[in-house]
Each structure stands twice: as C-alpha cells, then as structure tokens.
C-alpha cells in the first residue's frame, strides 16, 4: 500500500507543462510593446488625449482671457496694455462692489438652503413608503428642465400683473396687495434665491440619498442598542457617514451657485438699477452689453480667488481627516 495514488494522466500533463519553455506559450514582445509594458510610458500615453483637450479648450482660452484683462480692449478695437488698470477701475466701481456683496449673499443663502432642504428631502426619501421610486424620479424634474425655460415660467409666476403666486396668496387671504417680486432689491434677490434653490436642490437630494443608502444598517442598530435616540443617531451615524459626500456636494453647489447666470439673467438681468447683479451677469453686461471686453472678463476673474480659497480649504480638511 503506497499512500495515495495520483491519477496518471494528470501527472503526465503537468510534467509536460512544466518542462515547456515560456516562449512556447507567448510570442516575444517587440521593442514598441516592451516600452508600452512600462507603466510610466503607458500611463502618460493614456492621459495624453485628455490633457491635450484640456490645454486646447481650457488652458489656451484661460491664458488668452488673463491677457485680455490687462488690455483696455473694446469690441472691434485693438487694446492697449494697461496692466491692472481694469481691476483698479472695478475696485472704485459702486456697481461692482454691490455685485460682490450680492454674490456673497446669493451664494451663501442659496447653498445653506440647498444643504438643509436637500438633506431633509434625502432623509424623507430614504424612508420606506408607497410610490417611493416614483417620488425619487419625480424630484429630479426641476433639474432636468433647461434652466432658461424654468426661469421663464418663474418669471411669469412672479409677474406683477398676472403672476400666479401673488394671486394665490391673495386668494387665501395671506396678503392684501400684490407683491412686486422682482422690482425691489431685497425681494428680488430672495425671489432669485428661491428659484435657484428650487432648481439645484434635486442634485443635493439625489446625491445625499445615494450617500444615505451606503450607511451600514448595523451601525444604526448598534447605536440603537447603545441607547442613541433618532437625533443622536443622526449626529453619530448618519452625518459622519455622509460627511464626505456632503462636502463634495456643497463644494460643487457653491461653485455652480456662484457662477449661475441663466436664472438671474432671465428674471432680473441684474436690475432693478443694477441692484441684483452677480459676477456672471455683471461680466456679461460689461463685456457684451457695453463692449468693454477687458473689464468684463476682469469681473469674472475676481471670482477665482474666492473659489480657490473655498475649494482648497475643503479639500485640505478632507485629506487630513483620519477616518
């Protein structure tokens, strides 16, 4: 009795395989293929098309724009180099200063509202209820409709004479006289913020909903047994688990809100009396309305330092987060 017998055929086959030199299985690599095998070569090669596209479509126009802000360029006229002249002009420009404040208020209030309502919406849609999937799809509508179209509908709803909002409020006895939604700085800015929040909230809801669904159920259960009530479950389980998505979504939200153009342009075009301008609409007005290309581009450029600070601070914090 000689231990455990091995099936004969398999032994023969393995022997053959072991003896066969590697060249029999794969043809040798040519010089080009050998170079491509190196990750540093292949890597750059694969990144190249995207990089080229970025340089042509973003890098070149960007540098061109930087150059333009240093010229007193007007449409159809050769510009002269004036250094930082455009920026100095802006600093003493009342409308520009007002615009900076508008953009801050508009962005801050909008983003805070979007985060709060977006998170609330996501938490509600994350519950189990009938027709859940229908509502999850339905909620996307404001975001799918082209923003100029929906802004036009809002313009009509805000209308001083025919607007459905004022009429409805009067019908319910909530107000006595029509509100002139877009004719006064404070109310106009509020109206703009409402439309902006309404339009981008679906993005917040859907992203946060997706994040909520990745929170492990057993963490809630552990917290429940540990003695956490709903609120402390939210603080100790939900929020920390969706934190990163929340930060990214807020970051994108801030960038998009700050550079929003369509809604404001359609609703007020920066009026009344230039009081509701934000960077993008003012830049448009200076560059294409008044034809002062250099100054217009300079307006949009002043957005950059702000955005840079926000983005880098957030990313820096995220990198340092040990969890």
């Amino acid at each position: 009795m000689a231990g455990i017998a091995e099936p004969r055929e398999i032994t023969e086959q393995t022997k053959e395989l072991r003896q066969a030199p590697a060249e029999d299985h794969f043809p040798p690599l040519g010089p080009l293929a050998r170079r491509l095998e190196r990750p540093e070569v292949l890597g750059y090669l694969m990144v190249a098309p995207a990089l080229l596209l970025l340089i042509v479509l973003l890098g070149y126009p960007f540098i061109q724009a930087v150059w333009l802000t240093m010229l007193d360029k007007r449409v159809g006229v050769e510009g002269n180099f004036i250094g930082l002249g455009n920026y100095i002009d802006l600093w003493s420009d009342q409308v520009y200063r007002w615009t900076v404040m508008n953009t801050m208020i508009f962005t801050a209030v909008s983003v805070v509202c979007k985060v709060v309502f977006g998170l609330t919406g996501a938490l509600i849609l994350n519950q189990a209820f009938r027709m859940k999937n229908f509502f999850r799809g339905f909620i996307l509508l404001p975001w799918i409709i082209p923003s100029v179209l929906s802004a036009l509908v809002w313009l009509w709803m805000y209308d001083d004479t025919f607007g459905v909002i004022s009429r409805t409020l009067i019908a319910f006895g909530l107000i006595e006289e029509k509100i002139l939604w877009l004719s006064q700085w404070g109310i106009a800015l509020t109206s703009i913020i409402i439309v902006n929040v309404w339009r981008t909230m679906p993005f917040f809801i859907v992203s946060l909903l997706a994040a909520l669904q990745t929170v492990p159920k057993d963490q809630y259960e552990a917290a429940e047994i540990d003695g956490a009530n709903l609120l402390s479950q939210f603080w100790n389980v939900t929020l920390p688990n969706i934190k990163h998505v929340l930060i990214i979504v807020t970051l994108f939200g801030t960038i998009w809100t700050m550079s929003d153009f369509n809604i404001i342009f359609v609703l007020t075009s920066g009026g009344p009396a230039n009081s509701t301008h934000v960077f993008s609409t003012l830049a448009y007005q200076y560059a294409l309305g008044a034809g002062k290309l250099g100054e217009g581009i300079a307006v949009s450029f002043t957005m950059f330092p702000l955005l840079f600070v926000i983005i880098f601070y957030r990313l820096y914090r995220m990198r340092r987060d040990p969890t």
Partner: peptide
C-alpha cells in the same frame, strides 16, 4: 432596544468608523 439592558456584538462589528476606539467603547 436601549432600555432592554442588553448588548450586542455584530457580525460586521458595526463600529462607528469616525470614532476612536475609546469613543466607540464609551459611546453607550
């Protein structure tokens, strides 16, 4: 569950990922 005076150990541990070991253990 919080008032039953029981403790549970889960298959996937269910630790709170953003809390330190100390905070995890002291949470209850």
């Amino acid at each position: 569950p919080r008032d039953r005076d029981i403790a549970m150990v889960f298959q996937n541990y269910a630790l709170y990922p953003h809390k330190t070991v100390f905070a995890n253990m002291g949470f209850a």
